[in-house]
Simulated scan of single mutants.
Amino acid sequence: MSKKAWIGLMAASSCTNKIILLTFDVEDWFQVENFKEYIPYSSWGSKEVRVEKNTNELLDLLDSSSIPVRATFFILGWIAKRYPDLVREIQKRGHEVASHGFDHHLCYNQSLDDLRDDLLRSKELLEDLTGKQVLGYRAPSFSITDDALSLVGEVGYLYDSSFNSYEGHGRYGSLSLPQNTGQDAPIYSINSSIYEIPMSNLRIGSKIIPWGGGGYFRLLPAFLHRFGVKRILEQKKCYTFYMHPWEIDPEQPRVKEAKSSFRFRHYVNLHKTKRKLKYFIESNSDNSFQKCGDFVKSRSCL
């Protein structure tokens, strides 16, 4: 079956099984884009690293679920190089290891040569640590572009999961997605070498409301988030969710010099996130939590 035919089959299928793609961007509190102005890259090595502890807490939470949960961890190369055992632990627990780039540089701020190097360095490092092919990539801050996506395919990734259709965030990139797949499809076949798994947002009429996770997940009441997820699953049969390990860590250091809007977006409801994540998983116990790589390679319907 051709890739185009497979995508069409999934979109047209009436199967009742619904899929949730649970994804985590493995970076630490001092590496986020909102704090880059206040925490230069040169100072990262002197900061308190909390990502190992927080990621292990997430792994324990997934293991404690009453249903089988498999997730995809998009790991920053900077983290993987310093904490190789964490990468291996993620794989050992049955989850997918994927790439979040190496140094959290935005795609459109790099030359194509530098971006190619970043994509290859992170992929090769993770493959050396796991002994398995790394299939997936997610751009820092969803900063994907058409040229960047072409490079992702050229250097050997099977899929990208970086496109966020919400236009109210000034940092997100954009893509020219195929028009014949259907509006807001859960997966796109871009060309012969790469797939795109976009973030899931809620569409009401012509308006797109961010519903994929992160700060939006922390802001929304749990019952309201669940309602939106249910609607997305009814429409698309698949929901793609993301968050970061630092989002379950209310004890992390505070960047007091950052703008108030950045501080609010970063710190709001950190003390509730772990409990909300557990509720989100348990309230979707009748759905299937899959790794992105398995989802892309699967011939089962959505």
Rank of each mutant, 00 (worst) to 15 (best):
K3P: 06
W6T: 11
A12T: 10
F24Y: 10
D25P: 06
V32L: 08
V32E: 00
I39G: 00
P40R: 02
Y41D: 09
W44M: 06
R50W: 03
R50Q: 02
E52G: 04
E52Y: 10
N56M: 12
L58D: 01
F73L: 09
F73S: 05
G77P: 02
A80S: 10
R82V: 07
D85K: 15
R88C: 08
H95D: 08
G101N: 02
F102A: 06
D103G: 15
D117M: 06
R121A: 11
S122D: 10
S122T: 09
E124W: 09
L126H: 04
G131V: 11
G131W: 09
Q133W: 14
V134D: 02
V134C: 06
G136P: 03
S141K: 04
F142G: 01
D146W: 05
D147W: 04
A148Y: 00
G153V: 08
S165K: 11
N180K: 15
N180C: 14
T181M: 11
T181A: 13
Q183S: 15
Y188N: 04
S192D: 15
L202R: 03
R203V: 13
G212F: 13
Y216A: 02
P221H: 09
P221F: 05
L224I: 12
Q235Y: 11
K236H: 13
P245K: 06
W246Y: 14
R254T: 00
Y267L: 01
K274I: 01
K278P: 01
N287C: 14
N287H: 15
C292F: 09
C292L: 11
D294F: 11
R299I: 13
